[in-house]
């Protein structure tokens, strides 16, 4: 009898598979439902009628959302913040992490202590807000980018990843006359590509999803990011649980399909890239525990 390779499923296995299937469904169904209803044809959509699949399919809600200035603007600003923010995140985090791998650098311990300290203690919401206000960054996208340039956790994970790289290559490059910055760009970064990929994703997702910073730093509705706009569309229209907006006006598009379409647009980029990039996300998490 082959002990571990046996494929015969016991009753316990069946129960386990069945439970996992149920769990997977509770994770999948909300997406499928929201995507399905957001595709409803406005003319045949009946509020308060329960169905899983629309009577008639149509992209009307998406057409409408993507034709409004407020939605397009928020999309543009979110893309801007995500792209610029992520590039700066990666550049600053990786260069700082590499700098901190140099154990002989005077002041290194002080900087590391400072970094760890910020992980444990932070000034709180209001002092951070006052700083951004005093810098004149309110209602500027730079407030969102600059306040999240890097973070202690990413730095420490990237640093310990770089410390696990074989030092011989960097030494050889230095002997060949490379400067320390040359070593960083030509040797360390190419060797760190798995970490670069993982952290690019982490940073990009964080920027795309950022809500609270946008809420406090951007008060001008014309500057809103996608998450702020979606929150207003989806939640504020029914914040007391007694909203009665849906579909009272037959000439307009039903609010409900619009609200769902806006949620779908906010999660779509992640849903689209996720299956292809999942392994990098997982790898990113594993990076941290390599040495620990």
């Amino acid at each position: 009898m082959s002990l571990l390779t046996q494929k015969r499923l016991t009753i316990g296995d069946w129960i386990n598979y069945f439970l996992l299937l149920l769990i997977a469904l509770t994770f999948l169904l909300p997406f499928l439902y929201v995507i399905s209803i957001s595709l409803s044809d406005p003319k045949t959509f009946i509020p308060l009628e329960f169905r899983l699949i629309p009577a008639k399919l149509s992209l009307a809600s998406y057409h409408y959302l993507l034709s409004t200035d407020s939605f397009l603007n928020s999309l543009k600003s979110t893309v801007f913040i995500t792209v610029v923010g992520t590039v700066l995140n990666v550049v600053i985090t990786f260069s700082m992490a590499y700098g901190l791998t140099k154990k002989t650098m005077p002041g290194r311990n002080f900087i590391l202590t400072l970094v760890v300290f910020t992980m444990v203690f932070n000034a709180g919401i209001v002092p951070n807000y006052l700083l951004v206000k005093d810098m004149g960054l309110l209602d500027s996208y730079w407030a969102l980018i600059l306040t999240a340039l890097t973070n202690a956790w990413s730095l420490i994970v990237v640093k310990s990843f770089m410390e696990s790289l074989p030092p011989e290559l960097a030494d050889a490059a230095k002997i060949d006359g490379c400067t320390d910055i040359g070593v960083f760009i030509r040797i360390i970064i190419p060797l760190s590509m798995p970490a670069v990929a993982a952290f690019t994703l982490f940073f990009a997702v964080a920027h795309w999803n950022s809500y609270f910073n946008a809420l406090i730093y951007l008060s001008d509705p014309s500057k809103w990011t996608l998450q702020l706009l979606v929150k207003t569309l989806v939640i504020d229209s029914d914040s007391t649980g007694v909203g009665q907006i849906a579909g009272t006006d037959q000439t307009a598009l039903p609010q409900e399909t619009l609200r769902m379409a806006s949620v779908v647009l906010a999660l779509l980029p992640i849903l689209v890239v996720y299956p292809f990039l999942q392994k990098y996300f997982v790898k990113g998490v594993m990076l941290g525990s390599i040495k620990g």
């Binding site: 994770f27 909300p30 997406f31 439902y33 929201v34 209803i37 509020p47 308060l48 997702v205 795309w208 999803n209 950022s210 809500y211 998450q227 979606v230 929150k231 989806v234 939640i235 029914d238 649980g241 007694v242 909203g243 009665q244 907006i245 849906a246 409900e256 609200r259 769902m260 949620v263 906010a266 999660l267 992640i270 849903l271 996720y274 996300f281």
Partner: peptide
């Protein structure tokens, strides 16, 4: 997957599950 969604999206999905109107 849900780990990568924003809280706004998760809250939105919660509304589509539990709210009185939708």
């Amino acid at each position: 997957l849900p780990h990568f969604l924003s809280w706004v999206v998760v809250a939105g999905l919660t509304y589509f599950l539990l709210s009185t109107d939708v």
